[in-house]
């Protein structure tokens, strides 16, 4: 299960990189809707990374549920 989560984090990190490129591209070409939408997509990708890290037990509250 842990490998699945790790792969998910890696995949989402790649996607976030793509969205970050989208932000820069949108900014450079004045396509503001592309840039803003990429910000949103990047944040959503981050949220799923945080979820996966939480499920792996690497983040989250100090006292997790027992």
């Amino acid at each position: 299960m842990r490998t699945v989560y790790t792969m998910g984090v890696a995949l989402l990190s790649g996607l976030s990189l793509l969205f970050a490129v989208g932000i820069i591209y949108g900014e450079a070409t004045d396509q503001w809707f592309l840039g803003g939408g990429s910000v949103g997509a990047l944040l959503i990708a981050y949220s799923f990374i945080v979820l996966l890290l939480r499920k792996m037990g690497m983040t989250g509250p100090r006292k997790t549920e027992r």
Partner: peptide, 20 residues
């Protein structure tokens, strides 16, 4: 929780970009 702050703000921005 932080995960939902990221998700909701992200969703709002994504919608604003995709459905302008």
């Amino acid at each position: 929780p932080g995960v939902w702050v990221l998700f909701c703000v992200g969703l709002v921005f994504l919608l604003a970009g995709v459905v302008p």
